[in-house]
Design a protein around this nucleic acid. Structure first.
Length: 804
DNA sequence: TGGCTAATCCCTA
DNA sequence: TAGGGATTAGCCA
C-alpha cells in the first residue's frame, strides 16, 4: 500500500474540505494537530495510536476504522475511509498505467524506514497526463465536449486512465473553456468601456463649444442646452437600469422592489435651434421627421454624424421602434388574414390612421410591400441581437439575401455592456437571386432595445429622408425588424415585420407577385432563412452530426468543406445579382436572348478562382411545376444526366454528404460522374443545396480531386479554385398566372393535373472563357454560354414535361 | 504571482 | 446519481 506520497504537512489550512484532502492534510508531526473538529476524525479509533500516521501500519489501521463516532465525526470518518480507498485504487492505477511522468511505482513507499519518517514527508507528487493522452482527450473533446459514460469508459481503457480521471478531465476542460470565454468577453467589455469613455470625452468637448453645422456660428439648441439634453438621455438610461436592477432584486427577494420616484421618467427630448431651422420644435417620440414635416432638415451624407444628427437619429429610431413593436403586436384591424393564402396583409388605411409616417410620404411611382411573420428559431435573443448588430455576422447569417453590407457609423454601442440602446448607421445591398430583380441598395439606421428580461427588438429605418443621398433611391425601408423573445431550451420566438416602398418599374413582371406577397424581400424570407441557418449552426455545433458519407471526413475536414461550399454559394449569388462584391461588366452582345444577362470580369490573383476571363450568364424563367418538385429534380444526382453536361450522359454518384438541417435538402455533397472521360478523371462536383419556406438553391462547381482531398482532411479551402453554377428556385407568388412577357409561355401541363403554384427558376453559369486575364472576349464565348443556358432550360422543361 | 492542471467537495436537477 | 460550480494544491514561466 503506497501512502506516504499523500502525507501533507499543511495542516490547519484546509478546514471544510473533506474526503481525500483530509488525508492529505494529516499532520506529520502530531504535536501540530489542530484542536478543531477535524482533529477528531483523524482519530477514527481510540485503538489507533496518535502517532500511527508515522507508522508503517497506517494503511492497515485506516482500512478498518472504528466507526463508533457519531454525527459529523462518523461522516468524516467515512470520508476518511473512502478517501483512502480511492487513493489506494489510484495508486494501483498509477503503477498499472505505466505513465512515465509519475514515480509512484518506485517502491520506496513500501520501505518501512521511508514510511516511518526517516526522510521528511513528501508532498503529493506532481502528475500530469501524458501529451499523447491529452491529445486523444482533446480530439474527443473537439468532437464532443460531453461524452457519455460509454465513451468515457472506452477512452479510459484506451488511455490507461481511470474513468474518473477522464470524467474530471472533461469537467475541467469545460470549465476552462468557460473561463476562457469569460475572459475574452471581459476583454471585449473592457475595450467597449474604453471606447465609451473616449466617446464621452469627445462629447464633453463638443458640448463645451457647440457649433452650428449649417452656418458655422455658435449654436443654441432650442430651449434645452445640449448638456441638459444629454442629462435627460442619461436619466432615461439610469431609470431603465434602475428598473432592471429592481426587477432582478425583486426576483431574489421574492417581493417587488421599487426605485425612488423620478420627477420626469419619460424620455423627452426638445430639439430645435434658433439658427438652423428658424423655429423651435418640441418633439415627442412620434414626431414626424419625414420630408413633409421637416423640409430643410437634411444631413449631408459625406460627413460623420454630429451631435445634432445624433439627436435627429435618436428621434427617428425611437419613433421607428414604437411603430415596429406596435406592428409586431397588433393583429386586426392592422393586419388582416388573407383567407386564400393564410398570410397576413397590412391594412393600409388602418396603418395610416395609427402611425404618422416617420420617414415622410411615399415617393411618386413607388409601391408598398408589407409583411409579418412569426417563427420559433433555435437561437437565444442575445445571440440573435448580437448577430443583427454586427454587420459581418448579419451578412453571414443571411448570406443569400445580403450581397454586401457595412456599418458606416456607430452612434451608440449600447448601455451597461449590453446592446440595449445600440444605434448604428448601415448600408446594405439586398438581393433576390434573379437577374430580373435589381439589387436593393438601402441606407438605414439600426436600433436595438431591450424591452424586458429576454425580450429585445431591433428596428431598421431608412434615413434617406434626413440624410442627403448622392444616389437615386429606389427603395426605402419603413420601420422594419424583429421582436425576439426568449423561450425555454435556448429557442426564441421571433416576430418579423418588413415594410418597404420601392420603385416597381425596375422589377420584371415575372417577379412582381412574389415581391408584393412578401416572399421576395419580406418577413417570410427573413424568418425562413434565419430558421434554416440557425438549425444548421445548431447541427454543426452539436456532437452528433448526421453524416451518411461513404468516405471518412474528419471534423476539421467537414468544416473546411462547409467553408468552401459557403464561398461557392456566395460567389454564385454575387454572379446572379451583379452585386458590387465582384466588379462585373454587363455585356450587350448581339446573339444573346433578351432575358439572359451576360457579364464578364477578370480574375487575377485570387487563389479561390482560376485566373482569366470569367463569364457569367443568368436568366430566370417561369415553370409550371411546384418549387419542391423542381428542387428535388435538380438536386437528385441520379437524374443529373437529364440536364448537366458534366455528367457525361450518366448518373452521378454521391461520394460524401454533410447534412446541414433536418430537411435532407439542406446539405453539402461531393458528386462524381459515373461515366467519366479521360479529361474529367480528376474532377468532382461540389454541391450545396438548401431549402426553406421561402425558396431553394442548388449550387455546384467542378473541383479538382487532389484539392478536395486536402480540404476533406481539414486543409485550407481558400486555395481551391472554383467557379459556381446552379439554380435558385422561388414560388411564383400568389395570384401569379405564369409568364407575361419573357416569351416562355407554357400551358398548365407540367407535373400534375391541378395547378399547385408554379416556380420561378433562375439558372446561372460562371465559366472561364480564357485563362489569360488580358485576353479579349470573343463573340463565340458569349454565344456558347448563352446556348448552354438555353439548352439547360430546355432540358429541364423536357424532363419535367412542361414543354408547350 | 498568476495561469494551468488534476483533483476534490458540495449542491442541484 | 451525474454534472456543474467553487475551490485547492502543485508546478511553471
Amino acid at each position: 500500500m503506497n501512502f506516504g506520497g499523500f502525507i501533507d504537512d499543511s495542516s490547519g489550512t484546509n478546514e471544510g474540505l473533506g474526503g481525500a484532502r483530509i488525508v492529505a492534510d494529516i499532520p506529520y508531526n502530531t504535536t501540530t494537530m489542530p484542536t478543531g473538529v477535524f482533529s477528531q476524525p483523524r482519530l477514527v479509533s481510540s485503538s489507533i495510536p496518535k502517532n500511527m500516521f508515522n507508522s508503517p501500519g497506517l494503511s492497515l489501521a485506516l482500512q478498518q476504522p472504528n466507526i463508533d463516532n457519531q454525527g459529523d465525526e462518523t461522516r468524516l470518518a467515512e470520508n476518511f475511509e473512502g478517501s483512502i480507498g480511492r487513493r489506494s485504487r489510484e495508486e494501483e492505477h498509477e503503477s498499472r498505467s505505466g505513465s512515465d511522468n509519475m514515480d509512484g511505482g518506485s517502491g520506496d513507499d513500501h520501505d518501512p524506514a521511508t514510511a516511518a519518517g526517516d526522510k521528511p514527508p513528501r508532498k503529493k507528487r506532481y502528475h500530469r497526463h501524458t501529451p499523447q493522452q491529452i491529445q486523444e482527450l482533446e480530439a474527443l473533446f473537439k468532437e464532443c465536449p460531453h461524452p457519455d459514460e460509454k465513451q468515457r469508459l472506452e477512452l479510459s481503457k484506451r488511455l490507461c486512465l481511470e474513468t474518473r480521471q477522464v470524467k474530471f478531465w472533461f469537467q475541467n476542460r469545460r470549465t476552462q473553456m468557460k473561463t476562457q470565454l469569460e475572459r475574452h468577453e471581459n476583454s471585449l467589455l473592457r475595450q467597449e468601456n474604453d471606447k465609451l469613455r473616449a466617446e464621452n470625452m469627445s462629447i464633453r468637448d463638443a458640448m463645451r463649444n457647440p457649433i452650428c453645422t449649417n452656418c458655422g456660428g455658435p449654436a443654441i439648441i432650442g430651449d434645452l442646452s445640449l448638456e441638459e439634453q444629454h442629462l435627460r438621455i442619461e436619466n432615461a438610461r439610469l431609470k431603465d437600469e434602475l428598473d432592471r436592477v429592481c426587477a432582478l432584486a425583486g426576483k431574489f427577494l421574492g417581493r417587488p422592489i421599487t426605485g425612488p420616484p423620478l420627477p420626469n421618467s419619460s424620455l423627452e427630448l426638445g430639439v430645435g435651434t434658433n439658427c438652423t431651422f428658424g423655429t423651435t420644435m418640441a418633439t415627442t417620440t412620434t414626431l414626424p421627421l419625414g420630408h413633409d414635416a421637416l423640409p430643410t432638415m437634411v444631413v449631408p451624407s459625406n460627413r460623420p454624424a454630429t451631435t445634432l444628427d445624433r439627436s435627429m437619429f435618436l428621434e427617428l429610431v425611437l419613433a421607428a421602434m414604437d411603430e415596429l413593436v406596435k406592428m409586431a403586436q397588433t393583429d386586426e384591424p392592422l393586419w388582416i388574414k388573407n383567407i386564400e393564402g393564410g398570410r397576413e396583409m397590412l391594412n393600409h388605411d388602418e396603418y395610416l390612421r395609427t402611425f404618422t409616417p416617420c420617414i415622410g410620404l411615399k415617393p411618386n411611382g413607388f409601391v408598398t410591400e408589407a409583411s409579418r411573420e412569426t417563427g420559433v428559431v433555435i437561437i437565444n435573443s442575445l445571440a440573435l441581437v448580437e448577430t443583427l448588430m454586427d454587420s459581418n455576422r448579419w451578412a453571414e447569417m443571411f448570406h443569400c439575401m445580403i450581397a454586401r453590407t457595412s456599418t458606416t457609423d456607430v452612434i451608440s454601442n449600447g448601455m451597461g455592456g449590453t446592446r440595449n440602446g445600440a444605434l448604428q448607421l448601415m448600408n446594405a445591398e439586398l438581393q433576390i437571386l434573379s437577374p430580373l430583380v435589381p439589387v436593393r441598395e438601402v441606407s438605414f439606421l439600426r436600433f436595438c432595445k431591450q424591452h424586458a428580461e429576454g425580450v429585445w427588438a431591433v428596428v431598421d429605418v431608412s434615413i434617406d429622408s434626413i440624410k442627403e443621398s448622392t444616389t437615386f433611391v429606389t427603395c426605402r425601408r419603413l420601420p422594419s425588424g424583429c421582436v425576439v423573445q426568449d423561450m425555454p431550451n435556448g429557442y426564441s420566438k421571433v416576430i418579423w415585420v418588413e415594410h418597404a416602398e420601392y420603385d416597381e418599374s425596375q422589377v420584371h413582371q415575372l417577379y412582381r407577385p412574389l415581391l408584393s406577397s412578401g416572399m421576395g424581400f419580406g418577413a417570410q424570407r427573413w424568418v425562413a432563412t434565419l430558421q434554416r441557418q440557425c438549425e444548421c449552426l445548431a447541427i454543426l455545433m452539436s456532437s452528433t452530426v448526421p453524416t451518411r458519407d461513404h468516405t471518412a471526413i474528419t471534423p476539421s475536414g467537414r468544416r473546411s468543406m462547409l467553408k468552401l461550399a459557403q464561398r461557392m454559394t456566395d460567389n454564385f449569388c454575387a454572379g446572379v445579382c451583379a452585386s458590387t462584391v465582384h466588379k462585373w461588366n454587363k455585356l450587350n452582345a448581339g446573339n444573346v436572348d433578351e432575358d439572359v444577362r451576360v457579364m464578364t470580369r477578370k480574375s487575377i490573383d485570387d487563389p479561390g478562382e482560376p485566373p482569366g476571363i470569367v463569364l457569367s450568364a443568368a436568366t430566370s424563367v417561369w415553370l409550371p411545376v411546384s418549387p419542391q418538385r423542381l428542387f428535388d429534380f435538380l438536386r437528385d444526382e441520379r437524374l443529373r444526366s437529364e440536364w448537366d453536361i458534366l455528367s457525361n450522359g450518366g448518373p452521378m454518384q454521391e461520394m460524401a454528404h454533410i447534412a446541414k438541417g433536418q430537411d435532407h435538402g439542406n446539405c453539402v455533397s461531393l458528386l462524381r460522374a459515373s461515366a467519366m472521360n479521360a479529361n474529367q478523371s480528376s474532377m468532382l462536383i461540389l454541391q450545396e443545396t438548401c431549402i426553406d419556406a421561402a425558396g431553394s438553391l442548388v449550387v455546384y462547381a467542378p473541383v479538382d480531386i487532389p484539392a478536395m482531398h486536402v480540404v476533406m482532411n481539414g486543409g485550407d479551402s481558400a486555395y481551391v479554385a472554383l467557379l459556381p453554377s446552379g439554380f435558385a428556385i422561388v414560388p411564383d407568388g400568389p395570384g401569379s398566372h405564369g409568364p407575361i412577357s419573357n416569351g416562355h409561355v407554357n400551358g398548365n401541363t407540367g407535373g400534375g393535373s391541378s395547378r399547385v403554384g408554379g416556380s420561378l427558376l433562375t439558372v446561372a453559369f460562371q465559366i472561364l472563357v480564357n485563362s489569360l486575364p488580358t485576353a479579349k472576349l470573343t463573340v463565340e464565348s458569349v454565344e456558347t454560354v448563352n446556348n448552354l443556358i438555353s439548352c439547360t432550360v430546355q432540358k429541364i422543361k423536357a424532363a419535367l414535361q412542361c414543354e408547350s
